[in-house]
Simulated scan of single mutants.
Amino acid sequence: MDIISVRDMLNTMQLRGEDGELIPFSITFVTCDEKNDTGGNKITLDQAVLIGGPSKKTGGRNPNHFANYTRNIRHVDGDRIVKVHALLVTRFNGMRISQ
């Protein structure tokens, strides 16, 4: 069984192909919402891409993804954006995650 570090997983999420498009990845993570005391569901997306990145947009709330260790992703064929906490990811491209 292959293992990947959280750092390598986050770097791999940002990779782009020769056409400049983000390369899809598979990901399995556990949900958690401490504010509503819910979660514990395992979600698997077989073709996900990273959403967002640096922007010049001003105003609105800063999600501070780096400090909060979160990333926004979506399924390639969908439009629903999901916020994922990097430490709640259990598998990435078929590999287990090492903390």
Results as ranks from 00 to 15, higher is better:
residue 31 T to A: 07
residue 91 R to F: 13
residue 33 D to G: 13
residue 13 M to K: 03
residue 45 L to T: 01
residue 76 V to L: 15
residue 79 D to E: 04
residue 63 P to I: 13
residue 42 K to A: 04
residue 97 I to L: 07
residue 39 G to I: 04
residue 68 N to S: 08
residue 25 F to V: 06
residue 33 D to I: 09
residue 83 K to Y: 06
residue 4 I to F: 10
residue 62 N to Y: 12
residue 67 A to C: 05
residue 21 E to H: 10
residue 44 T to Y: 03
residue 97 I to F: 07
residue 61 R to V: 05
residue 76 V to R: 09
residue 40 G to A: 02
residue 68 N to V: 01
residue 28 T to Y: 03
residue 22 L to V: 01
residue 15 L to T: 11
residue 50 L to S: 08
residue 94 G to A: 01
residue 91 R to S: 12
residue 72 N to I: 02
residue 40 G to T: 06
residue 17 G to F: 09
residue 30 V to T: 05
residue 92 F to T: 02
residue 10 L to N: 08
residue 41 N to C: 02
residue 92 F to L: 09
residue 99 Q to E: 04
residue 38 T to S: 15
residue 23 I to G: 02
residue 40 G to W: 00
residue 39 G to M: 11
residue 35 K to Q: 13
residue 60 G to Q: 02
residue 84 V to G: 03
residue 25 F to E: 11
residue 69 Y to N: 07
residue 50 L to I: 07
residue 32 C to E: 15
residue 49 V to G: 03
residue 35 K to N: 14
residue 5 S to A: 06
residue 92 F to G: 02
residue 67 A to K: 15
residue 33 D to Q: 13
residue 46 D to F: 09
residue 58 T to M: 14
residue 23 I to A: 07
residue 76 V to I: 12
residue 51 I to S: 03
residue 7 R to F: 06
residue 70 T to V: 07
residue 71 R to S: 04
residue 18 E to V: 12
residue 43 I to C: 06
residue 75 H to C: 14
residue 79 D to M: 06
residue 80 R to P: 00
residue 26 S to K: 00
residue 11 N to I: 12
residue 95 M to F: 01
residue 78 G to H: 09
residue 30 V to F: 05
residue 72 N to W: 13
residue 33 D to E: 09
residue 21 E to V: 01
residue 76 V to A: 11
residue 71 R to I: 11
residue 43 I to A: 12
residue 63 P to M: 12
residue 71 R to G: 03
residue 64 N to K: 13
residue 66 F to P: 00
residue 7 R to S: 01
residue 93 N to S: 02
residue 71 R to M: 13
residue 64 N to R: 10
residue 85 H to F: 13
residue 80 R to Q: 10
residue 14 Q to H: 02
residue 39 G to C: 08
residue 92 F to E: 04
residue 3 I to V: 15
residue 3 I to Y: 14
residue 84 V to L: 06
residue 53 G to I: 09
residue 48 A to N: 08
residue 40 G to E: 11
residue 88 L to H: 09
residue 28 T to G: 08
residue 10 L to G: 00
residue 99 Q to L: 14
residue 56 K to S: 11
residue 1 M to G: 03
residue 59 G to N: 11
residue 70 T to Y: 10
residue 29 F to V: 04
residue 22 L to P: 00
residue 4 I to H: 03
residue 97 I to W: 14
residue 93 N to A: 09
residue 90 T to C: 02
residue 31 T to N: 15
residue 9 M to K: 04
residue 5 S to H: 06
residue 97 I to M: 02
residue 41 N to S: 09
residue 64 N to V: 01
residue 60 G to D: 04
